[in-house]
Design a protein around this nucleic acid. Structure first.
Length: 481
RNA sequence: CGGGGCGUAGCGCAGCCCGGUUAGCGCGCUUGGUUCGGGACCAAGAGGCCGGAGGUUCAAAUCCUCUCGCCCCGACCA
């Protein structure tokens, strides 16, 4: 294990991989494109999972679990869906040593198997809505993989809801999108653009796809979560009807939505620096790490005494902490290690601190007042309260910095030449747009940039930068992960 | 699937062009001691059929052929 990571400015992709490996978040699995999520990385996922799960429960959703094997015939029911997913599916053809009568798809997403159940569950408008979420792993056979960002197997949650009206389903899709925005911005401190995807970018089988889109440290875009209004597409494919209040048979309206372990990749790239990870306090496995410094046994017991007072205070403030009293590592080694792991606040407790009843505090996040990485001395008795506030400050600071970075790197283009220049410099580009799918494909071909999102907030009208036609919407173009 | 790289100790690498007896280095690991406020030091150890198969040769980590795997860059995608 070398002692540092590749600099972000030297090779961003390498930096990213170095951080994932050296912060002990994940490592490569034996099969190409697979990933072993190590305890530290998994702890972050657990934070995200708990936060999301709470939001879902608060809005009336329940969890369930559907099988990972999907009969081939199910996959093929919805034409657009199978066309979109078939190329990236893994399929089981042998079971118990014998060829199977019907091949089994390993779920790339669970719409089909879930809607086969919904058909059995839904008779009347009184059975609606159904608001189910599942936490699961899924498999998509990607050609090009990267730890957390795109792996062959990944963890996610997928919500699948059934509604009596289009309006209600649309509302649901939007409600979830707003939850995703909050998770991303309020917890991961990762600012996102909220809006709709273009036809070419939408989910296979959806009527429309909504998404949150974030900017990474290299100014590329990351789709961080999607919420789909599926209309009656899956209800028709699986013949799921209900009797409405006027006793008429009608197809059910649907949504589906998901966020995945990709969020962890986003987290890394939104905040990390050349020393490694920087975690927002709200998702950090531990928000505070305490490193003792001692020489003699006498010092050791004094320090332990101070630390136990300290940790009692942290507990009562509900601050997650880790006391690293291992003696085989030196304090300096630990400092670097926890900076790599992005722990928001480090406390040092040594003999000098015992004498003054104080602790040394160092925060991980970059700050404008140059306190970043600088040691502050705080009274031990007030430490929990001070830390409590500082964690909030760190959370806000990280969001603000990421937000400023994105704004600074979001530029307008009036025409295609200007667009090409700006995209080379790497940034989000706001443009008036009146083009079609073919125009979008051509632009992608020529510049590698795609329409990331059509923001909901639309005020102005103008002239399309590409076609020159009058345009009533602004879209965001960028190169994406 | 196209282009590039890499497989030698747990990890990172050297050795390979120019074949030659016991295959090296750094980190990590073990034991003992000294250390500990920014990646400690000393001493003694453990650890490898050089990715796999075949060939050339008196002799192969090294040369040739085939093969497997992984990583990176491009076309598909959360």
């Amino acid at each position: 294990m070398s002692i540092s990571v590749t600099k972000r400015s030297e090779d961003y992709a390498k930096w990213y991989t170095d951080v994932v490996l050296k912060a002990e978040m994940a490592e490569y699995g034996p099969v190409k494109g697979t990933m072993i999520i190590r305890p530290y990385g998994y702890a972050i996922w657990e934070r995200i999972r708990d936060i999301a799960d709470n939001f879902f429960k608060e809005t009336g959703h329940v969890n369930a679990y559907f099988p990972m094997f999907i009969p081939e015939s199910y996959m093929k029911r919805e034409a657009e869906h199978v066309e979109g997913f078939a190329p990236e599916c893994a399929i089981v053809t042998i079971g118990g040593g014998k060829p199977l009568e019907e091949p089994l798809y390993i779920r790339p997403t669970s719409e089909t198997i879930i809607w086969a159940s919904y058909k059995k569950w839904i008779r009347s408008y009184r059975d609606l809505p159904i608001l189910i979420n599942q936490w699961a792993n899924i498999v998509r056979w990607e050609m090009r993989t990267r730890l957390f960002l795109r792996t062959t197997e990944f963890l996610w949650q997928e919500g699948h809801t059934a509604h009596a009206t289009a309006a209600e389903a649309e509302e649901e899709a939007m409600r979830i999108l707003e939850i995703y925005r909050q998770i991303s911005e309020d917890y991961l401190a990762m600012p996102v653009l909220v809006g709709r995807k273009t036809e070419s970018q939408k989910f296979a089988g959806a009527v429309h796809t909504y998404a949150i889109e974030a900017m990474m440290g290299d100014k590329k875009a990351l789709q961080a979560g999607t919420s789909h209004y599926l209309g009656q597409n899956f209800a028709k494919a699986f013949d799921v009807t209900f009797l409405n209040k006027s006793n008429q048979l009608e197809y059910v309206y649907a949504t589906s939505w998901g966020v995945s372990t990709r969020l962890i990749g986003g987290l890394i790239m939104a905040h990390g620096d050349d020393k490694g990870l920087i975690l927002p306090p709200r998702v950090a496995p531990y928000q505070v790490v305490i490193v003792p410094i001692w020489k003699s046994d006498a010092e050791k017991s004094q320090i332990n005494e101070l630390v136990s007072k300290l940790t009692a205070g942290l507990k009562s403030e509900q601050i997650r902490f880790h006391y690293d009293h291992r003696e085989q590592e030196t304090p300096g080694w630990k400092f670097n290690q926890y900076e790599m792991k992005g722990v928001p606040i480090r406390l040092e407790v040594g003999p000098k601190d015992v004498a003054k009843n104080q602790v040394v505090l160092v925060r991980r996040d970059p700050t404008n007042d140059e306190s970043a990485g600088r040691k502050q001395f705080i009274p031990a008795d007030n430490a929990p309260a001070i830390i409590k506030n500082m964690l909030e400050e760190i959370q806000t600071n990280l969001f603000q910095r990421a937000h400023d970075f994105r704004d600074k790197n979001t530029l307008n283009a009036e025409n295609y030449d200007q667009f090409k220049e700006l995209i080379e410099a790497g940034s989000f580009i706001r443009v008036f747009w009146a083009g079609n799918g073919a125009d979008e494909a051509r632009i992608q071909e020529e510049t590698k940039a795609t329409i990331r999102v059509i923001p909901f907030e639309q005020k102005e009208k103008g002239t399309c930068f590409y076609t020159g036609k009058p345009a009533d919407q602004i879209v965001i173009f960028a190169r994406a992960y």
